[in-house]
Amino acid sequence: MTKISAAILLAMFGAYTWDELQVVLIMQGFAGISLFSIFLLMALGMAIIFGQMKVINMAHGEFMTLGAYATVVCSYLSETYAPGLFHWYFPVAMIVAFGAAFVLGFLVEISIIRFLYKRPLDTLLATWGLSMIMQETFRQVAGARETSATMPDWLMGSWQPAEGLDIPINGMFLLGVSVLLTAAITINMYYSRAGLRVRATVMNRDMAGAVGINTRLTDRLTFALGCGVAGVAGCAFTTVGSISPTAGSQYIVDTFMVVVFGGAGSIVGTIIAAFTIAQAQSILEFLLSGVLAKVFVLLAVVGVLMIRPQGLIASKIRK
């Protein structure tokens, strides 16, 4: 595969030396991987929620934005009141982002979502409304301008293992965060009591209730966890993207695509989907153009879903 693509590239970029091409191909490979980690981060929270309770959280993007704004606040506070600690504020910001989104998610579950479990389509509408309320709240509180969290030096610039080869540090950071977060969620879901309760509730809600699992609390915590993960993703994205009241709506389409393509709610499916879409997107963009790549990727996803509506990996649930 690499040989073929290298040959194709040689034909396309015959004017370049092999060294130049090699460097760009390595960077391009990394670009694909870092897009993968972005997609994965975006989709994890939604996949957890969708998998557990079949609620599509249209406000997912806004929970990310909340995490991003939490990061801005942390960066501001640390710059103003504790410049000595500024270097290391980012991990703290991540925890704050998680906490803020988790708490808000918990409250949203109590006040809105729990009344709508029997009406899945209405949760779509309700969370969409919620997303607009959140956007307008951000606009009122933080203003409509784009803002940025000030990055500590260690998160900026590039790592240069060789001449002309620049590996973005923020890209490696995103990759690290997404790997750790995925691992944490997997462990939580498959190797902990809490995860056992979640899985039991998903498989058979009544039976889980009968053996003494508090299914309502499980729902509540899962929803809050999904939102919290979105908050962490939002925090991580401040290293590469912008923060504005509507920033979340830019992510929701890709997020939704990854989750549905992967097979609703399966973590493995989400990982595979994120990887496939990210690689397809970045390779096509390299060979064609950004807009065309988006068109072809969307067409391919639609095509696959027509043949396999349940997504790549379907979760086995007794219906």
Partner: peptide, 14 residues
């Protein structure tokens, strides 16, 4: 919003 990503990623790419 693209502007922010563009400049940040330029810097990250050296």
């Amino acid at each position: 919003g693209s502007n922010v990503s563009w400049y940040k990623q330029l810097k990250a790419a050296g």
